[in-house]
Amino acid sequence: MFITHKGKVMKNKRNQKNIIWKILLIVFSIVLIICLIIIGIQKYQQKKQQEYYEALLENAGSQPQATEEVPEPETEEAPDVLKSLGIEIPEKDIDFAALKEENSDVYAWIYVPGTNVDYPVLQHPTDDAYYLEHNMDGSKGLPGCIYSESVNTKDFTDPNTVLYGHNMKNGSMFASLHNFEDQQVFEENPYFYIYTEDKTYVYEIFAAYKYNAIHLIYNFDLTNPEIFQNYLDQIFEIRDMSANIRQDVTVNADNRIVTLSTCVSGEKNMRYLVQGVLLNE
């Protein structure tokens, strides 16, 4: 049987195509394996960090067991304003000295009832974005940490202190702030708490809403009382159906607020903000 020149050419082309497809299949398989390995490492790292935070939380939420009788420790007395409102500060046994041994950038702890937010707060001295992609132990990757930027002082005396955290799919970090989209959760959990070595700050939540992903501190000079008041007025005028605003809470330019900021899934140009006004000045 004779094979024409044209037939040989076609056969060679088919062979070349088969080789190309085999090469592509091998390359695709290698890429797929690499991607699966990377995903696996990321998942392992996230799980490890979650276990680490859970251990911190367990220690912060429990009282040490005494083996002998010891004098009762002095507890922080609630200021008159908190007593008059019937607000009790949740007790936490936070060992800041131990936390700072692990990471000297820790300066506070935040607890938000109605959510999973119960974490240390950090601020890097030189890199504002460091804890966006670094963990408490300094390892790079998710979930990162709850942090503030150096534009804010660490004593919560600024007009607006902004704390950032990832919107993690597993519900960690600031993901569960989105619980406040539910009006019932918003109404039943009116306060959040920030613990420091010297004082516990109590904030009344007055707003939870989606907002443009702008830098709040750089875009609003809230050291100017008029600008601060206009900014607050804009918040109370929000009429978005997904927003929850407490119209009966008085907030003015003489107050200090904290803004908790996280991402909105599928909306990269938006942020979800939960804001509270300091009650115990």
Rank of each mutant, 00 (worst) to 15 (best):
E88D: 13
D80W: 04
L85K: 05
E69K: 13
E88I: 01
D80V: 04
K83R: 07
D80G: 04
D80S: 02
S84T: 09
P73F: 14
E68Y: 12
G86A: 09
T67C: 11
L82C: 02
S62A: 14
K83Y: 00
L82Q: 01
S84D: 13
P64V: 12
V70A: 06
S62F: 14
T67G: 10
E68F: 11
S84C: 00
E88C: 11
P73K: 14
A66P: 06
T75W: 10
Q65R: 09
E77N: 05
I87G: 10
E88S: 15
L85C: 01
P64Q: 03
D93K: 03
P64T: 04
E91V: 11
I94N: 05
I89P: 08
D80M: 00
K92C: 03
Q65M: 05
Q63D: 06
Q63V: 06
P64L: 10
I87A: 12
T75N: 08
P71W: 10
K92P: 09
E88R: 11
L85Y: 02
E76Q: 04
T75H: 14
E69W: 15
D80N: 07
E74I: 14
A66R: 07
Q63C: 03
S62H: 06
I87L: 08
Q63S: 11
A66D: 07
S62I: 02
E91M: 04
T67Y: 07
G86W: 03
G86N: 13
P71Q: 10
Q63F: 10
K92T: 05
V70Y: 05
I87N: 07
E68N: 05
P71T: 09
G86M: 08
P71I: 06
D80P: 00
E88L: 01
E76A: 14
K92Q: 14
L85S: 08
P71M: 04
V70R: 06
L82F: 05
T75C: 07
A78L: 05
I94S: 03
D95Y: 09
P79I: 03
I89M: 10
